[in-house]
């Protein structure tokens, strides 16, 4: 187990470094930063001055090392637009997005896992078809539209739930429901597929032959084997939710990291964009590592690699 952990950790670190290089490089390639920072009407001399001021005249490798060194101490630079420290900026916005992402994933799993299990156990029954219907609906309906429908029903008509802002937990209910429909179908279908494979397996037949109760057969013997891909998918989905909630955030006027990224790209605030990219990928890598470790807990065979 320890060897496996160290190996995974090593790979994760390499991935983080690679991602940082790419995120650093991409922004430099997108245009002359000095010109963008100096503004549209700037003269050549002003641009040159800006270039030296921001250290953009140095070699790319030096610039990267400088940035990476500071990043490791938590110094991600300052916003070109508001001059706030980027770290501060992200620290105020990330919790909103993270709360949204985690609660959406949690909700999605709480719905998808039992639904997937039941759909597999009662294969081709009405439960299975209903679950399939929900899955198709969830993946086919655009979430901004679904968000508007929810706002209309629960916010405007029934007046049950707040529809914008992040002042209380209640404000997160509608965005969470909206966002969870994005990831719920895949998790449900994957659970169903894994469960069907497991239920047809010899070890589940063996479990029945041992006279075990249905609950033990389904949840102890079958589900644990069906869970591996679900864990991996959940980690990926969480990363996706962290980075991909821009639209939902804007519909519900949540000031999350998605909207910060959107604003910063429009303003060409490159230290912020770059840092968001980096922080999100860092979290993503962390989640993947976590899912690898959970899977190693679930399945002893994985610990061999």
């Amino acid at each position: 187990m320890w060897r496996y952990f160290v190996k995974r950790l090593g790979i994760a670190i390499l991935v983080v470094i690679t991602v940082s290089v790419i995120s650093f490089g991409l922004l430099r390639l997108s245009g002359d930063l000095a010109q963008i920072i100096a503004g549209e009407g700037a003269t050549q001399a002003q641009i040159q001055e800006t270039r030296i001021l921001y250290g953009l005249d140095r070699h790319m490798v030096l610039q990267y090392l400088d940035w990476a060194g500071k990043a490791m101490t938590g110094d991600l630079g300052r916003s070109l637009f508001t001059n706030e420290p980027v770290f501060q900026l992200i620290a105020t916005r990330l919790p909103v997005t993270a709360t949204l992402a985690f609660s959406s994933l949690l909700l999605a799993i709480c719905v998808a896992l039992p639904l997937g299990v039941f759909a597999a156990v009662y294969r081709n029954s009405w439960i299975d078809r209903a679950a399939l219907g929900i899955a198709v609906f969830g993946s086919a309906v655009p979430n901004f539209w679904f968000a508007l429908v929810l706002i209309y029903i629960f916010g405007v008509q029934l007046r049950l739930l707040p529809i914008s802002g992040s002042a209380s937990w209640w404000h997160f209910v509608l965005p969470t429901v909206t966002l969870s429909t994005m990831v719920m179908p895949q998790i449900m279908r994957l659970t169903r597929g894994g469960m069907i494979d497991a239920l047809d397996s010899d070890y589940v037949k063996m479990a029945w032959a041992k006279g075990l109760n249905p609950g033990i057969v389904f949840f102890k013997h079958a589900l644990r084997n069906a869970l591996l891909p679900v864990v991996a998918l959940s980690a990926v989905s969480l990363g996706f939710l962290l980075g991909g909630s821009v639209i939902v955030e804007s519909v519900f006027s949540l000031n999350g990291i998605g909207s910060l990224a959107y604003e910063s790209i429009q303003r060409a605030d490159f230290p912020v964009v770059q840092s968001i990219l980096f922080v999100l990928s860092f979290i993503y890598v962390l989640l993947t590592l976590l899912s690898d470790l959970i899977n190693a807990r679930i399945d002893p065979r994985i610990r061999l690699y």
Binding site: S201, D202, Y203, K205, M206, A207, W208, A209, K210, G211, L212, K220, H221, R224, N225, I298, D299, P300, R301
Partner: peptide, 20 residues
């Protein structure tokens, strides 16, 4: 089942649950 009447399956490679 498993008590007074039990069963030995064909393939021991697949009839034991790999995760327990």
């Amino acid at each position: 089942r498993g008590n007074t009447l039990s069963m030995i399956f064909q393939d021991p490679m697949t009839s034991l649950n790999p995760v327990y």
